[in-house]
Amino acid sequence: MAISLQCFLFLICISIFSSTMAATDPPLTLNYYKSTCPNVFDIVKKEMECHVLSDPRNAAFVLRLHFHDCFVQGCDGSILLDDTIELQGEKKASTNGLNSLKGFRIIDKIKNKLESECPGIVSCADILTIAARDAVILVGGPYWHVPVGRKDSKTASYDLAMENIPSANEGLLSIIAKFLYQGLSVTDMVALSGAHTIGMARCESFRARIYGDFEATSGKNPISDSYLSELRSVCPAIIGSGDNNVTAMDNVTPNLFDNSFYHTLLRGEGLLNSDQELYSSLFGIETKSLVQKYAADPVAFFNQFSDSMVKLGNITNSYSFVNGEVRKNCRFVNT
């Protein structure tokens, strides 16, 4: 009980700190580009339509990029920066999957279109935020308004990427702490985790889960046993063997944004330990209730996901807002 109390007090302190920091963030507006680049939303939408229609997995790639961007220095496009002699980027951090993040070329193409239409106006951070919204819509998810006006950071932080981004095998209390640090509630955390209803995971991320407590959470029945056997055929037990093999995080409707992810957790078949913890952790009284709610009510899930995505996108970098720039190339700071 003493450990639980310490964790609780620690989380409260973090929550207060993050709320104080969020209060100083600069405001974003829906009409920021109304006079300077009025077609920005249409251009992003058309490009995303092309990429998602050609491969639905691109929706998950872009959505994941946005999440990983916002959890490090706020939503400032720092995740898009390549390594240079002067700058160490975030792409090679192990929490970013050691170069497993994808979707960068999609953002590059959108940026090129916008530079032709209105050069030097639209930030890469805004492009990524808008594209993430459109990605969700294109695979059946909800709509939400995207406030814009972000600036691009001139820096990145490998260290913060290692510290701030939840890992696949992390425990529930640690994940909650990381979300609270960003000013996001437990409700936001459970709703945003629903993004795993689309996308794939690498063997390295789920090996410990399928050779660990998967059987205990799913129960021994023919269907779950068959699914586990399939997962183990994709991901061998030997570390380093098949690390880059992938499988869908939602094996029922992997290319459709719906609430199927939560049903997976109810069955105890969550692919990632960090996901199954939402339902199975002893500390997850609130998270378990939310998983049950979103599994039973897809409208409630969509509504909360939309609200939580706005909150995620509003995690701004005050320093970059004042000292940042609009990059000409999303991969490099302006010279």
Rank of each mutant, 00 (worst) to 15 (best):
I12H: 01
I12K: 07
C13I: 15
I14K: 05
I14E: 06
I14Q: 03
S15D: 12
S15K: 13
I16T: 05
I16M: 07
I16P: 01
F17C: 13
F17G: 13
F17I: 12
S18F: 06
S18A: 15
S18R: 04
S19R: 10
S19C: 03
T20D: 05
T20Y: 08
M21Q: 13
M21K: 11
M21D: 10
M21P: 00
M21I: 11
A22I: 09
A22H: 05
A23I: 08
T24W: 11
T24F: 14
T24D: 13
D25Y: 13
P26F: 10
P26H: 08
P26G: 07
P27Y: 02
P27M: 11
P27K: 14
L28H: 07
L28N: 08
L28M: 12
T29N: 07
T29G: 02
L30R: 01
L30Q: 02
N31T: 12
N31E: 10
Y32L: 00
Y32N: 09
Y33W: 04
Y33Q: 06
Y33R: 05
K34T: 02
K34D: 11
S35W: 03
S35I: 10
S35C: 04
S35T: 15
S35R: 11
T36K: 11
T36P: 00
T36Q: 12
T36R: 08
C37D: 03
P38V: 05
N39L: 08
V40E: 05
V40S: 02
F41C: 10
F41D: 14
F41T: 15
D42S: 12
D42C: 01
D42P: 00
D42R: 05
K46D: 08
K46T: 06
K46I: 01
E47Y: 04
M48N: 04
M48C: 06
M48Q: 04
M48D: 02
M48A: 08
E49H: 08
E49K: 12
E49G: 00
C50T: 08
C50Y: 12
C50A: 12
C50W: 07
C50F: 10
C50R: 11
H51V: 04
H51R: 11
V52I: 14
L53A: 10
S54T: 01
S54F: 02
S54P: 01
D55A: 04
D55F: 01
D55H: 03
P56Q: 09
P56W: 06
P56A: 05
P56T: 09
R57W: 03
N58C: 08
A59S: 14
A59R: 09
A59I: 12
A60S: 14
A60Q: 06
A60T: 07
A60Y: 08
F61S: 11
F61P: 00
